[in-house]
């Protein structure tokens, strides 16, 4: 046994190479004079050498084959999960697109249920038998006219845009539409119309800001 716990600790510091040169010299001097510590050091050194000399063993024969045999079956679905993890922006964008398209599609489906709707003006006549909205001669529709599931005959004047969904518009020779005339018949066109409208809104908002 080392003569003192302090020296035992120092011996371990020395074995770990955790000593300054002066500390080391001091320890050497002590080992020269203290037999107990010198023996302790020799025994430690010997134990370490024994452990280090423990022969290096190798993995058993066909170890790798054994490991491979126990691998779980490959998961086929893994690639897209990984792809989604690696491209979160694309994933979010495509989910957004799908949801948007679905919601537009469903709202279009809801709207095509044959009910004639008019938005935009009071100065129109509605012929429910033929499903026609008439802007009579001499009458003026202030602003936009928006007709769903019906035809439109413009004999008078529309100061804004005319939009016809699932219908047709006839512009009589005397009739006048100041804004744009748009006919929307199919889901895709309807979606395109909405996209355009959103874009226009955003654009005009920006313009107003300026």
């Amino acid at each position: 046994m080392a003569c003192h716990k302090d020296y035992e600790y120092k011996l371990h510091q020395y074995l770990d190479g955790d000593m300054t040169e002066t500390e080391r010299d001091e320890l050497y001097q002590h080992l020269d004079t203290c037999e107990e510590c010198a023996i302790h050091y020799k025994e430690l050194k010997k134990s370490v050498m024994f452990v280090q000399s423990a022969s290096h063993i190798e993995a058993p024969f066909e170890f790798t084959e054994g490991v491979l045999k126990n691998l779980p079956a490959k998961k086929k679905t893994k690639w897209w999960k990984k792809w989604m993890r690696q491209h979160p922006v694309f994933t979010a964008a495509s989910i957004f697109t799908v949801l948007m398209a679905a919601s537009l599609f469903f709202s279009w489906m809801e709207q095509s249920d044959e009910v004639l709707t008019v938005a935009g003006s009071q100065n129109v006549e509605i012929d429910h038998e033929t499903g026609t909205v008439i802007v009579p001669e001499g009458k003026t529709v202030e602003g936009d006219l928006y007709v769903r599931n019906g035809h439109v005959e413009v004999k008078g004047e529309v100061t804004g845009d005319l939009t016809v969904i699932n219908g047709e518009q006839y512009l009589a020779s005397a009739g006048r539409v100041a804004g744009e005339i748009e006919e929307v018949d199919q889901a895709l066109e309807w979606i395109w119309y909405h996209t355009k409208r959103i874009a226009n809104d955003v654009f005009s908002l920006e313009q107003e800001d300026e």
């Binding site: 371990h12 770990d16 025994e43 430690l44 134990s47 370490v48």
Partner: peptide, 14 residues
Amino acid sequence: HIHRGREALRKRLK
């Protein structure tokens, strides 16, 4: 842990 391990080995292998 290494210090204590070495001490324990020393006692067994000395």
